[in-house]
């Protein structure tokens, strides 16, 4: 029997943070970002960490495989893949739907979990469900938990920074908790859901060979992407606005590290 993992990563695109993100009420009555479809996008950063951790784990665990399940407008997903496909090997499961930040977590989770259930060859007993512990566009922090529940995965870990596979096959997991500390947990093994924080790995460099290999399956996956209806459920939106600035940023140059540390300590104590 294989010891490899079947790692399913959920993650999609978010607008490039350098862009001006101005919420407006759309014609459909739902909020959207101004010129949202035309804003360049990147992979949701937390989902990115999850994907890179998944690829790293798969590379050091023989017979493992990584799927990326992404819900978003098909054509924009394709554009995203031109960068992402060069990072790490994975197989794409594309869902053609909204990637808006104004959708409901349960609606998104339903589409994702149904897509995961439909993955051919996925061994649910060996499955690790990865995703971001939050999202840069819809920061409910609930989506991955609901996906896990819908797939009957009850070992769930959030804000994960580290995962080690022990010799006996158990998983040792470090989750972020308050005060800069970690909660260390051990679970017997898959299936488990891990909502990643930043992890410990840098963003992999582009590798065109990996890209060309991935694209052989990505393009067909995009072509057969099923249309999904990801909405806002029963929510209604009265108005949308940019969050009020809560803090003032002070820009200083050439401040010694000791001085920065002193200020931080002072701020934490306050």
């Amino acid at each position: 029997m294989s010891n490899g993992f079947h790692i399913v990563v959920c993650g999609s695109l978010v607008p490039d943070p350098l862009q001006t993100l101005q919420p407006v009420m759309g014609a459909s009555g739902l909020p959207e970002l101004k010129s949202e479809m035309m804003l360049p996008s990147v992979l949701d950063p937390w989902a990115g960490h999850a994907l890179f951790e998944a690829a790293h784990l798969a590379a050091k665990t023989p017979e493992s495989k990584v799927w990326l399940v992404s819900a978003g407008p098909k054509a924009r997903l394709q554009q995203l893949m031109m960068t992402l496909a060069q990072k790490v090997p994975f197989e794409l499961v594309a869902l053609d739907g909204s990637a808006s930040g104004f959708t409901d977590a349960s609606s998104v989770a339903k589409s994702l979990s149904e897509a995961i259930e439909g993955i051919a060859g996925l061994d649910r007993s060996r499955m690790l469900l990865f995703g971001g512990c939050a999202s840069a566009s819809r920061d409910a922090g609930a989506t991955m938990q609901i996906v896990g529940e819908r797939l009957s995965i009850h070992d769930q870990f959030l804000a994960v920074d580290e995962l080690d596979v022990e010799n006996d096959g158990s998983l040792r997991i470090l989750e972020r908790i308050e005060g800069g500390q970690y909660l260390e947990s051990v679970c017997e093994g898959p299936p488990a859901m891990l909502g990643w924080a930043t992890g410990t790995l840098p963003e992999p460099k582009n590798n065109p060979q990996v890209g060309m290999m991935n694209m052989r399956t990505i393009m067909p996956a995009l072509q057969r992407a099923q249309s999904v209806s990801v909405g806002a459920g029963d929510s209604t939106f009265a108005s949308v606005e940019v969050p009020q600035q809560r803090r003032e940023t002070r820009i200083v140059k050439d401040l010694p590290a000791d001085e920065i540390a002193r200020e931080l300590v002072e701020w934490i104590r306050s």
């Binding site: 893949m81 031109m82 890209g211 060309m212 694209m215």
Partner: peptide, 13 residues
């Protein structure tokens, strides 16, 4: 040409 699109992204990075 996705091969060229990938090269563009890679070079841009």
């Amino acid at each position: 040409r996705y091969d060229l699109q990938m090269l563009v992204q890679s070079t841009r990075a």
